[in-house]
Amino acid sequence: MILIHCPYCEQTLPELEFAYAGEAHIARPADPSALSDEEWEKYLFIRANPRGRHNERWRHVHGCGRFFNAVRDTATDNFELTYKAGEPRK
């Protein structure tokens, strides 16, 4: 069971308090109707799925309740860092 640092609580806590929430930095388009089918498909379904460094979202669901971002190595499961939602990609 991994430990995850919540950037809001500023505590490093057991994974059981958290929930994974998919790839990070995929913003919902401001005006979806302006997007072509291909662009919308890309937004909806296409994900990086890298082996290695991955910017992803977690939620401290059984804690402060906040969604935040993390950089995790998908091969080793090691967290490089976590940062608040809304902060630029790291």
Partner: peptide
């Protein structure tokens, strides 16, 4: 005071 979990119960 914190929200946390006991086994599967918040």
């Amino acid at each position: 005071a914190r929200r946390t979990i006991y086994e599967t119960v918040e």
